[in-house]
Design a protein around this nucleic acid. Structure first.
Lengths: 253, 253
DNA sequence: TCCTTTAAGCTGGCATGCTAGTTCGCCTAG
DNA sequence: CTAGGCGAACTAGCATGCCAGCTTAAAGGA
């Protein structure tokens, strides 16, 4: 399945660099040599992915010097990357003590879901009013893929399509700054969401809600779209809260 | 006027450090020596303030080595601070070329206002439902100060009280994560807002809207509170758009 | 035996030197 | 006089070495 994700991920305001034409006299570089990303960027991305996917669980210590060897770079690049993650609250760095993957506070998750709900409701209302027909067609295509994923029981693929669906709403209106905030929120929420995915019944329920949202947008009914999105994300929030009741010790507080 | 601001400003996830007991053999340090902040933190704060207040206007180049001399630190601390600002999109750093204060895109401002409206409407609704009486009393006190500021025509003081008013809503519900997002948004919006302040008529209009918001909260009327906040921030947005019509060349696009 | 103290080994913060890419001005060639 | 190219002076990225604080455990005294 090829759901091309347009790269909305990386934050920050930097121009890409020209390809540096590998120094040739230095280390061969375990780090994908030909790239316009700085080394700190690459380590940042790798660490972020590991944290979001749960490969690095909460409380996991971050071994900086180990990462230096792992990626073949100096401590500075690793430190820069870790500092960025600390700025995003994905890791906590305690000076002179160590750094570790941040724990998950229930209150934080609730707040992030609240932010997400507020923003996406706002966005979907604007979508119903102003989204171009070409973008509605893309939504339609995405919905078809979602149906296919549900039919074939492809949990992971459906999750990707879910993300893509919500991204389409943002991109269709060129709301890049809003999209950045939502991406940031999603990285935090996904850290816990992946724990409650493996229930197949949820998939078709989510599909139905997506279809409801899609229909209200296609019908140009802003109020109904806002309502549909609100109930959709409200259910996700409630499921998260139900999960935290069943696994209270996974979180902090 | 002593409107104690509780420090919600600085983002990031770091534990504060103990006081380092100045090395005594090193430079006296132009940088407020006794502090638990790292040098990068302090430069970050100073630069951010300079950018938000307009002391460093858009397009202004950032002279890193000049800042090193100015603050008596090495390039690394300055670079770290600038990188953080780049992550927040307050500056743009072009590798091997230079760094400068980011321009202001009209589309960005609109999006940030949209985010702010969506979030504050959500928050104020929750405030009307759950805010404790002690916090409502603080709001009341803040309103009294606002009246005083308007009567005495203290524009700058009123602006601070305006900010404090909105912060109280966040702090009263302990929505720290939401508060961080709003602080970040406000940083960007304030960069342009300060250009349209000096119209005295606006101050009393804003005061009236704040009073309307306060009353709906005190009355525990969530719907009315949401409406009042919506109209309040909608007016701010419209004034920003009116401003951009009168000064089109100040922005990008 | 237990408590205190001290030293070794971690950690992150910071300074500095070096490399490489970009820009701009000057000098030369046409 | 103009156009092209070369070099000096910026810039940011990166590596490395050093310093200070925290943790831990071992050693010494009560």
């Amino acid at each position: 399945m090829s759901t091309r994700m347009v790269g909305v991920t990386a934050g920050g305001a930097k121009r890409p660099r020209k390809s540096p034409a590998n120094p040739l006299g230095k280390s061969p570089g375990r780090i994908h040599a030909m790239s316009s990303e700085s080394k700190a960027d690459q380590i940042y991305g790798a660490l972020k992915l590991a944290i979001v996917t749960g490969e690095l669980p909460p409380e996991a210590p971050i071994d900086k010097i180990g990462l230096c060897a792992r990626f073949g770079v100096s401590r500075l690049s690793v430190t820069t990357a870790v500092n960025r993650l600390a700025f995003e609250r994905l890791v906590v760095v305690e000076p002179q003590r160590g750094s570790y993957v941040s724990r998950i506070r229930i209150s934080d998750v609730r707040q992030w879901m609240m932010v997400r709900r507020a923003l996406e409701v706002e966005v979907v209302g604007a979508c119903a009013q102003h989204l171009g027909d070409d973008w509605i067609e893309r939504l339609d295509r995405n919905m078809a893929y979602q149906q296919t994923a549900v039919k074939s029981g492809d949990l992971d693929g459906f999750h990707q399509l879910d993300i893509a669906f919500h991204r389409l709403l943002i991109e269709g209106l060129s709301l890049d700054r809003v999209g950045e905030i939502l991406e940031s929120v999603r990285t935090h929420v996904d850290r816990t969401r992946r724990l409650l995915l493996p229930e197949p019944g949820r998939m078709s329920a989510t599909l139905k809600e997506h279809q409801a949202i899609y229909r209200t947008i296609a019908d140009r009914d802003a109020k109904a779209a806002a309502r549909a999105m609100h109930t959709h994300l409200d259910r996700v929030l409630r499921e998260l809260e139900a999960f935290q009741d069943r696994h209270p010790n996974f979180f902090t507080d």
